[in-house]
Write a protein that binds this DNA or RNA. Structure first.
Lengths: 332, 332
DNA sequence: ATGAAAGCGCTAACAT
DNA sequence: ATGTTAGCGCTTTCAT
């Protein structure tokens, strides 16, 4: 049985509130009392119950990170970065995917129940805006969204719009300029949703009068494996492009594996450009050109926004736009 | 202001306990009352307060994952795997590194205060055993440890010992058999602690009558960057080994980058073997030989142990040993 | 079938 | 400087 303040009170013969005041460091106690309580706490092995404290203060000292159903390296890097930034807050990943709903009270959005003081949502789209608008999510909230598909951020909640368009544009132009047959490699859902990578690619190709060449990989399969298979199949069926613009770094690396096995070299035979700019890309061999997300900046701005919102709930809505940048490296 | 059961009670004219019974699905209510409460809950937008529930039930429906100070890809994979396994429990990463201690009540181990129903510790060494022994950690607990350095798991808490020795042994023997000059690449702290990778390497080399060659990288620096620098410096100073046994996959990949820039090819000039067996290794080009951790198995056994301990706190101590295996691929 | 009452461990306003 | 009191939102036992 855990030791409580009550136990300390009984042990020292003081009242519970005196004990509490000492332990929270608030009241004005006689130095003697102070020591008595602290000693008792140590002797008995007292540990504060963060749940009880949170219940009464309304603050859990925890930040939630709400990520999209398919966890990916970018989410992982953000979690990692946030975990360091937000001290002394704790970080709690919010996974609502496949999660049981309340037994008797169906609700599609258990995220609202997460015991956190604020939430950073990564790539959840319009759902947070909608929930906020409906009053189902009234706690400090920052939404990280991409311009990846034709997206207009809602006007209410604090938002960081990450623009991948600029970096993509530079990257694709670079490929179109230096190579003949430029293909796009991406997950099959991306063209359907009008992803900006697809848009940028198609527009640039059309402007250059080149035919489109798209390699699609299935959704919900192991990404690297399915990508390798798709690239292999495509090259066998249609021959090999001399440049591939890839939806993300993992796909670029998987494509490299496929090309290698087919006897094509990167960058001599095929130029490769990825997306995301994770550490992995920089240390691939050859180092992978990529459209890099400003992860550090995303983390620090998100935390800045959230802190502000926590301390000043009525502050005007905060909004920022962060841009990707093209990092040319050896693979192109 | 969030809607509480009290609000529902007032709204429906019923008592708070009746409302509570309906909402927890326990009591025997008139179907009419039942509907009334549920409707009111929906209309008012009631959401249960998980904190209050946890306080009274003593169960948070959350599992903690306590990881070592330097977060690494293996921890990330474990987090990822656990997050899926443990539904409907939540997962809470426990980061005690640099965390503020209680103001007035210094404690080196805030982990004990984390509001979780059980903890899975990854690579924390003897600390959990000690805390348990001292009674500072009396909740369900599973410790994942490695035989990496001369480690004897404590006899009290549920433990999974991950043996990297078998896989390493096969890997090193393979290198010694097929190559002439086999080097070891690892973080500088590993030899100091008698890491099993170092042991296995040194023993095999001595048995083969070969001289030791060790490339050390600094602790606490960006791993890939510092590794690349260390390998480059080493090769420039001492020439190039024709095989490198690497402390982990990231280091192997970084080493590959360095070798490439120096004009050496993998595997023709240098064979490379990593450790960990993450997805990244399999899709590197060339695919990276590695000593693979049984991540899936670790996750499922850990969760099995913890569940058992949660439901039956007095069950006999659980213990398992899981082995790594050498996965020979193109890089060697 | 419903309600009254106690209590989880803690904080905080107020009284002494 | 210390104690009294109330209450956070919920579960649970026991009366009615």
């Amino acid at each position: 049985m855990p030791v409580t303040q009550k136990d300390i009170a009984r042990y020292t013969g003081l009242s519970r509130s005196t004990v509490a005041q000492v332990l929270t460091g608030l009241g004005h106690q006689a130095p003697e009392t102070l020591e008595k309580v602290l000693n008792a706490a140590r002797e008995l092995g007292y540990r504060p119950n963060s749940l009880a404290r949170a219940l009464v203060t309304g603050k859990t000292q925890t930040i939630g990170f709400w990520y999209s159903p398919f966890i990916n390296p970018v989410s992982m890097h953000l979690i990692n970065g946030l975990d360091k930034q937000i001290l002394p807050y704790k970080l709690s990943p919010i996974n609502v995917w496949n999660r049981e709903r309340s037994l008797s009270l169906p609700d599609e959005f258990p995220v609202a129940e997460w015991p956190v003081d604020g939430i950073i949502a990564h790539n959840i789209g319009h759902l947070p805006d909608w929930m906020w608008h409906e009053g189902r999510l009234n706690k400090p909230f920052v939404s990280l969204v991409y311009d990846a598909f034709p997206y207009r951020p809602g006007p209410e909640i604090d938002t960081i719009l990450i623009q991948i368009r600029p970096g993509c544009q530079t990257a694709v132009e670079h490929l179109v300029k230096t190579r003949k047959r430029v293909a796009l490699l991406c997950i099959e859902s991306m063209p359907l949703y009008g992803d900006v990578r697809v848009q940028v690619y198609e527009k640039a190709m059309q402007a250059a009068g080149r035919p489109l060449e798209t390699i699609l990989t299935p959704l919900g399969q192991p990404l690297r494996l399915s990508t390798k298979q798709a690239v292999t199949a495509h090259v066998k069926a249609h021959g090999c492009p001399d440049a591939i613009f890839c939806g993300n770094d993992e796909q670029a690396i998987a494509a490299h594996g496929a090309l290698q096995e087919l006897g094509f070299r990167v960058p001599q035979d095929v130029a490769l450009v990825g997306n995301d700019g994770l550490e992995e890309a920089a240390y691939h061999v050859p180092s992978l050109s990529t459209v890099a997300l400003p992860i550090e900046e995303i983390v620090s701005v998100a935390w800045k926004f959230l802190q502000k919102r926590i301390t000043r709930p009525d502050a005007p809505r905060q909004y920022a736009e962060l841009k990707t940048s093209f990092l040319p490296r050896d693979s192109s």
